[in-house]
Design a protein around this nucleic acid. Structure first.
Lengths: 142, 142
DNA sequence: TCAATCTTGATGCAACTGCATCAATTTGCT
DNA sequence: AGCAAATTGATGCAGTTGCATCAAGATTGA
């Protein structure tokens, strides 16, 4: 089963990548928090919901888009809905299911988050990686 | 202050990198858990302690090695010490401080974690990245 | 048809994290 | 020396996550 054996380069690259993403992510969370905005996870959710448009999404669809566990999404949705950034409605075609849609307030907050997110990315991520390197990185991970 | 402006490549590369590391990390955690072993964070700690040798390390030194908050390390240490994988002793030269050392049991568990960690890395990380790409990635992030 | 199985989503409980703050030194300044 | 400031580490509380499990509706198949 080991088509691609694990090499020393893999291990070292993994360690670096983990370090970097943890670090950058932390910087982003800190920036969002000190701007009085919700955490990064909410941004991902609102982004998906906004992209989905007026038809909304079923939670299980969100689950596969975002890297998140079912029970975790369930509770995240509770919080986000409670905050007024999304709505949960019953699903006509499936009695078990729901349809989740972003609200105007949700769109507003998402849009407010992006400049902060972006600035943090610039300071924390772009500062360590030239544009050329970012392009290479993107190619590597595609 | 924006030496390196944030480009579209940066943003996309960031999204990919975050996705990848989250995904791989999750696979590793799952593998460790189903092997009845402690989480990844413990491995990092035990690795640092083992590297430090018999002199051990001060918590604040561990803090700067690992990406972890002070209060978080404090409690992680409590758990790891309670599990018998490390010891906390008073520090002679600094009455506030402690010295943390790995125990034999800690070394044993660390060594038991590595094959699982490694196998998960192989399946989850190496499977998506050739050795050449891993080497490129490492170079990019160095 | 209708019972077994699968899918969708929620929740009680325990563990973990973030935040604010505290206590006990140690260090630095005058 | 003596006191303010900084460093080191712990902890109460609230919020979040993981795990196991549950409930309710869909689907499959004899």
């Amino acid at each position: 089963m080991t088509d691609t054996p694990l090499t020393d380069s893999h291990v070292k690259a993994w360690a670096r990548a983990l370090r970097l993403t943890e670090d950058v992510r932390q910087d982003i969370e800190t920036a969002l928090k000190s701007a009085g905005l919700p955490p990064l996870l909410w941004y991902d959710l609102l982004l998906e919901l906004d992209r989905a448009g007026p038809n909304g999404l079923r939670p299980f669809q969100l689950q596969s888009e975002m890297l998140i566990r079912q029970y975790n999404l369930s509770r995240l949705l509770s919080r986000v809905v409670k905050a007024g950034y999304a709505t949960r409605e019953e699903c006509d075609s499936d009695g078990r299911g729901q349809i989740v849609r972003i609200t105007d307030a949700g769109r507003t907050v998402k849009d407010a988050m992006w400049p902060i997110y972006r600035a943090a990315l610039e300071k924390s991520f772009a500062a360590r990686l030239s544009e050329a390197d970012a392009a290479r990185l993107l190619r590597l991970l595609s």
